[in-house]
């Protein structure tokens, strides 16, 4: 933890310059030690995640407001989503969280190659998720379920509900899953950089903050999906 300047002076005085030279190369000069540096990094990452919670929170709020307003249209819209693909993607994403956690573990126990492998597996599973998402999106384009001037006017697809209200469901579907997918694209980019650094041996049990913090981000994105999946896909499941 942070020490007062007097402590720091005595600390430095008690150790010869040789100790200074032995400092871990990843230790930034404004931190006392690697532990304090890791705590700061984790705290900073969590503060960012708080803003992310509220970022997505606004969309979940919009969903709740419209869902209670246009309940029947939302059930009809949800009914039209592919639950099977949603379930597969949930499994894929939870699997990627496992490989991410294992990547952090591998760095913690100094297994360089395992760290790289788990990071690459996480990228792969993230890619599979985005691929399946792309298949779903293309189905929606094909079925004219993308909000806008081409949104379906075929009442037989959604009998008994206002199509404008179904369009609101699909607006929220595309914005929420789209923002989620954007986060995954960013995450995959960061993971690719991490994999290169991990391969070069930058991370070890003494220093793996970037792996840990990227893990926090990746797991957060997983949690967003954990809530999106039931709210979007399972809402109309019992009406099948």
């Amino acid at each position: 933890m942070a020490s007062v300047p007097a402590d720091r002076q005595s600390h430095h005085a008690a150790h010869p310059p040789a100790h200074q030279a032995a400092h871990h190369p990843a230790l930034q000069h404004h931190f006392d030690n690697l532990e304090q540096q890791k705590e700061s990094a984790t705290f900073g990452m969590w503060l960012f995640l708080v803003t992310e919670v509220l970022f997505f929170g606004g969309l979940f709020l919009a969903y709740l407001v419209y869902r209670t307003q246009y309940s029947a249209a939302f059930v009809a819209g949800s009914h039209h989503l592919d639950v099977k693909l949603g379930v597969i993607n949930t499994g894929v994403l939870i699997g990627s969280s496992l490989t991410m956690a294992m990547g952090v573990w591998a760095a913690q126990v100094n297994r360089r190659k395992a760290t790289v492998v788990f990071l690459l597996l996480t990228i792969l599973l993230g890619g599979v998720f985005l691929g399946i998402k792309g298949v779903e999106y293309s189905h929606k384009f094909h079925d004219n379920l993308v909000p806008g001037p081409h949104f379906t006017t075929d009442q037989s697809v959604f009998p008994g509900v206002n199509l404008r209200h179904v369009e609101i469901f699909y607006s929220l579907y595309f914005i929420m899953t789209g923002l989620h997918a954007t986060h995954m694209v960013v995450g995959i980019g960061i993971l690719a950089v991490l994999a290169v650094f991990a391969w070069r041996g930058k991370y070890s049990s003494a220093y793996y903050n970037p792996v840990e913090c990227t893990g926090l981000y990746w797991h957060f994105v997983d949690i967003v999906w954990i809530f999106l999946f039931p709210l979007l896909y399972l809402l109309g499941a019992h009406a099948r």
Binding site: S97, A101, G215, L216, H219, F220, D222, I223, I226, F227
Partner: peptide, 9 residues
């Protein structure tokens, strides 16, 4: 979500 936060995170 709680499991993910407590153990994965």
């Amino acid at each position: 979500a709680t499991l993910v936060v407590l153990f994965f995170m």
